[in-house]
């Protein structure tokens, strides 16, 4: 099994977060379904050219977030996707909102000003 993850050197996030994000994306788009057997930590490390310790950390974090589960001696699997997919999608949405808020902050907008702008957008979209 050859695995491809698309990692970037210029991405500001640490490598383990990039790996997590890419695996989550595979789950979200449905490439990796519930029960999908993930490559072992070493296989993954070797095929994406990233150290074992980094991949191990990504797997542990994914396990903590219940995106994957690990069976002793058998390896890691994608958890029940139905629940996860929505969970992941919400998380992705939250991240986008955070980015927007950060941009607003850098423009020097106050919380009230951001809220006003957001309600304007909401009104526009939901009125249709």
């Amino acid at each position: 099994m050859t695995i491809k993850l698309f990692l970037s050197q210029t991405d500001n996030r640490p490598m383990y977060l990039q790996i997590m994000a890419q695996i989550k994306q595979k789950v979200m788009v449905g490439d990796w379904q519930a029960g999908f057997h993930l490559p072992s930590i070493r296989e993954m490390a070797s095929s994406i050219g990233v150290s074992v310790i980094t991949v191990k950390r990504a797997y542990l974090e994914l396990e903590r977030e219940k995106v994957i589960y690990t069976q002793q001696g058998k390896g890691s699997f994608i958890a029940d996707t139905q629940a996860i997919r929505s969970e992941l999608q919400f998380e992705a949405l939250d991240n986008k909102l955070k980015d927007a808020v950060e941009e607003a902050q850098s423009l020097g907008l106050s919380a009230e000003q951001v809220q006003t702008r957001l309600s304007d957008i909401l009104n526009e979209k939901y009125s249709n």
Binding site: E43, A45, S46, G49, V50, V52
Partner: peptide, 23 residues
């Protein structure tokens, strides 16, 4: 990177290129 696949193998490598080392 392919050597990573083999858990019995140990590697020490020196470099002044941190990008290679970091990965």
């Amino acid at each position: 990177a392919l050597i990573l696949n083999d858990e019995s193998r140990t590697v020490l490598f020196s470099s002044h290129n941190t990008a290679d080392v970091e990965k």
